[in-house]
């Protein structure tokens, strides 16, 4: 198994054309090692969410390639992309995005149900909920738990399929500082415990404290570290 779990090669994303053309991502190239806890930071409108959408296979690059766990995802069909997202990626959104019609436990089991590998799904989901401290809330409807609890459940949902990468888009953006700290610590501990790769997009780098690695996005270009050297493009 390769040590590189994510690799972007010359990824460009252009929206619009002519006078309205916007270069959201500009020749982004970097790779991520298995087990890394990576922050992608940048100001609003810098292109970091667009980058996350590329990594999450929610959007396709205008040019360039995205490799996940050694697979070139840019050539996959819609159905294969869905299956790939399900098995290789875990998602944590800003607003947890649990399905309100299901219980917390059912939400955590959902990726397994979609994958049709229901065997032990409930047992594993309960174990994960226990590890994020939600064993007492698992039978509650998802819209009946607090924002912090919902986000912890979303972390459990993101992990249930043992994905190659867990992608988090402003996971603390909707939480108070105390709850945000709890969620961050939970993600860090899970990353260590499971040797799980986390790619987290945030505009608030300081909330996360010590992390393995930081990539800064500015004007659609990716730079290693927090400080953006003038004219220096990222190479890894």
């Amino acid at each position: 198994m390769s040590d590189i779990v994510l690799e972007l090669k010359n990824v460009n994303r252009v929206f619009g054309q002519g006078d309205t053309k916007v270069q959201a991502l500009d020749n982004v190239t970097f790779s991520v090692k298995r087990g890394e806890f990576l922050l992608i930071v940048g100001s609003s409108g810098s292109g970091k969410s667009t980058l996350l959408n590329m990594i999450g296979l929610l959007d396709k690059p205008s040019s360039g390639q995205v490799f996940i766990d050694g697979t070139n995802t840019t050539k996959l069909s819609d159905n294969k992309i869905s299956a790939f997202r399900n098995s290789k990626l875990g998602f944590i959104f800003q607003f947890s995005n649990l399905l309100a019609d299901l219980t917390v436990l059912e939400n955590v089991m959902l990726p397994r149900n979609i994958q049709r590998t229901d065997q032990n799904a409930q047992k594993q989901a309960i174990e994960l909920l226990r590890s994020v401290g939600l064993e007492n809330q698992m039978h509650k409807r998802a819209n009946k738990v607090s924002g912090g609890q919902a986000q912890r459940a979303a972390i459990a949902r993101g992990l249930i399929n043992h994905p190659a990468i867990v992608l988090a888009d402003e996971p603390t953006g909707n939480l108070d500082s105390v709850t945000a700290e709890t969620v961050i610590q939970l993600m860090k501990s899970m990353a260590k415990k499971l040797n799980q790769t986390f790619v987290i997009v945030t505009h608030d780098r300081h909330q996360f404290g010590e992390v393995d690695r930081i990539i800064t996005i500015k004007d659609g270009r990716a730079f290693e570290g927090e400080d953006v050297p003038p004219k220096m493009e990222l190479t890894v």
Binding site: D78, S82, R85
Partner: peptide, 8 residues
């Protein structure tokens, strides 16, 4: 959300 987590 369902599409994002893999529903076809």
């Amino acid at each position: 959300v369902m599409r994002a987590i893999g529903a076809k």
